[in-house]
Design a protein around this nucleic acid. Structure first.
Lengths: 146, 146
DNA sequence: ATTCCGTTGCTCGTGTTATAACCACGCTGA
DNA sequence: TCAGCGTGGTTATAACACGAGCAACGGAAT
């Protein structure tokens, strides 16, 4: 019942990309160095982001990664779903017909409501929100311990 | 990122117990038969419920299980936490100090908010709510296909 | 003694978290 | 134009943890 490391790294990576100058291409190893991820694992994490249209990539010399959309257009839910597939709290919430009890199982609806609330929160934050917040936090930090 | 089967079975079991006459003791095998759980697995599921003070048990001839509290006093969150421990969406939300980034990681707060929303939903439903709903659903069903 | 539940340990499958080897693409300079 | 190098892309694999379930034995109550 936890989000995976892959999702966490993916969020970090996208936020990092959003912090670069627009259209600036970033090397994989620079992402790794700054975000504490190993190159091999980062490769695996980036592919779903690319397929979801969140990140784009460029091969060859001078190649690397960059955001494929505006940071305002990317929500945390997008990143989550790119890595983990559709959000579901219980199997019966997605694979319809799997649960023959769902006609009378009242828990079903509660799981559904909890899931919707969670999705709502994740959808309400864009990557640019995160970048802004992070900036604020860092300037706060500097004030406290300059 | 899904609830475990144990939690699902636990909810079913508690709802089933709540549907009995007050203080009626139910045999393990009757729970198994009605709730589609194997005895061996149910054994494992019931223990955390007992330790959490949700269910109590009676050994020996005529023994079995019954609710230890009023169904109004038991929330879905109680059952969830009995089976899966404290709800946490990300490791860094419980094991403080594990994440050295949390001072500036803005995703941290979003996971926290999503988690709180979810907990709020689970806390807002008691077992007696579920029993009531289930009863309504069943009478609806009978109306449609008598 | 019988009928219950309690505890423990085990297996087996699946998902997470990587790692590594090899492949495909594209720029660049001879 | 083409060889070579520097990129990311794909796929196979492995270690490990956890979920899910099973079984056997132990202990309490009647």
């Amino acid at each position: 019942m936890v989000i995976t490391r892959a999702t966490e790294y993916a969020v970090r990576t996208v936020v990092f990309l959003a912090q670069q100058e627009k259209n600036e291409i970033v090397l994989k190893k620079d992402i790794c160095r700054t975000q504490d991820v190993t190159p091999a694992f980062l490769t695996k994490i980036l592919q779903p982001l690319i397929k979801a249209g969140i990140v784009s990539s460029q091969r060859g010399v001078g190649g690397g990664f960059l955001l494929a959309k505006d940071p305002e257009q990317i929500t945390l839910l997008d990143i989550f779903q790119a890595e983990e597939g559709q959000l579901k709290l219980n199997h019966c919430l997605v694979d319809v017909d799997v649960c023959h009890r769902d006609a009378y199982c009242s828990a079903h609806e509660v799981w559904y409501e909890a899931q919707m609330q969670m999705a709502q929160v994740l959808k309400s934050y864009s990557v640019s929100d995160l970048v802004k917040r992070q900036h604020e936090k860092l300037t706060q930090l500097k004030k406290c311990a300059p």
